[in-house]
Write a protein that binds this DNA or RNA. Structure first.
Lengths: 217, 217
DNA sequence: CGGGACATTGAAACGTCTCAAACGATGTGG
DNA sequence: CCACATCGTTTGAGACGTTTCAATGTCCCG
């Protein structure tokens, strides 16, 4: 499981320390977890469900910077404030870690903090991957990369990959319009690579060729 | 100085600890500092000069993920290996911190590591800013954002902003072709926003309107 | 079951990319 | 120190693919 490599490895004691800090948050689909520029008083860790981290631009456009899956960490601040907003895409269960106490714990437990550092470094790499994606001109190729990306993160068979987010959310992540995503989906189907099963499920019919298209940057 | 906010705040003792680990690297323009996928044995911190962090894609295209200016940290690994390559854009002086020893130091000194964590978090935010940039369709707007970005990082008057990198490097950072950058430069000049003074220097003639264009996402 | 949000499809406009040629800067060897 | 080869840049014209605008169709939530 590739997503395992990204998980923070903890000793039992560390897990207990974190658990003693954490409160569990049950949020409904579409619920806002925090808003950009708000004072960052907590860090969050996904347990179940999917969350999107996005930004509203002055023009009204929305950019989705990341979809957060179980085990993902999010809500790290820059300068004491959240740099984007977070909203639940599905009903979700989230660990909430108060920043004030977490900060103290991290400063005292170098190993634990080292896990956090590794996690953020990995997120940085993911952000770079996305910018490679956005460098592509062809919408079908971008969508192919996205499907591969989701396949890596979700624990589900390729015969029925869930796509809980809307086409608009996908567009906002891929740097395309809603229409372009819709057309790209049709292109992938015409090429026999995938079959969309309603709006929130895909079957990967030809993983090898899909991966080839995704890698053809 | 906005770049000050990004600097790691250190006590004298911490500075000494880091200094005792560091070796100083003097590299010539175009020298490679490390290559992608190489085992990551060191982390680097800029002292003087400019470095680019880039990736070679299978197609032969190059993507520049970041330009590193003095006080920037780079070379953080993901999975024990460098995720991109680094090359000097100008002659540069760089602190080299051996990973093995740095790792031990960070685990023992939570405050020092906390500074690193903040630094990486900030870099993550910069990566997101770049993806907002790459979402724009208009080359002139992208270039405007880039000039504002350089202005924030460089300690120089707006009347003579240095652009040490080549047009190709800028294109690889902006997700444009070399030709598009060249034409965008001409557009900004025609609008009276800037004046290019040779290939490696710009004068910002109308900072307010340039900032407006840069923010018009 | 109804209403509103979301998604598909079509046609035209727009702006970069591509290809190509000429120009300018850079650095090396004679 | 200059000539020259090389790399990088400018400029032009056409092709390509997404965006935009608009209308229709579908999903889903109350």
């Amino acid at each position: 499981d590739p997503s395992d490599a990204e998980a923070i490895r903890l000793t039992d004691r560390q897990r207990e320390e974190l658990a003693s800090l954490a409160t569990i948050l049950h949020v409904k689909r579409r619920a806002t977890i925090y808003l950009e520029d708000a004072v960052a008083d907590s860090v969050f860790s996904m347990r179940d469900g999917v969350v999107k981290a996005y930004r509203e631009l002055a023009s009204g456009k929305r950019v989705v910077h990341a979809f957060l899956f179980p085990r993902d960490l999010f809500g790290l601040a820059d300068g004491g404030r959240y740099v984007n907003s977070a909203r639940a895409v599905t009903d979700a269960t989230i660990y909430r870690l108060p920043m004030a106490e977490l900060s103290i714990l991290l400063r005292h437990d170098g190993d634990l903090q080292y896990g956090f550092l590794a996690k953020v470094t990995h997120e940085l790499r993911e952000a770079q991957r996305r910018s490679i994606l956005m460098n592509r001109r062809d919408a079908a190729g971008r969508l192919a990369m996205f499907l591969v990306f989701v396949g890596e993160r979700v624990d589900a068979p390729a015969s029925r990959l869930p796509l809980p987010m809307t086409r608009s959310d996908m567009a906002a992540f891929l740097g395309l319009t809603l229409e372009a995503v819709s057309r790209a989906a049709r292109v992938l189907e015409r090429r026999g690579l995938v079959k969309f099963d309603g709006l929130h499920s895909v079957r990967i019919l030809d993983p090898a060729r899909l991966a080839t298209l995704a890698a053809a940057v």
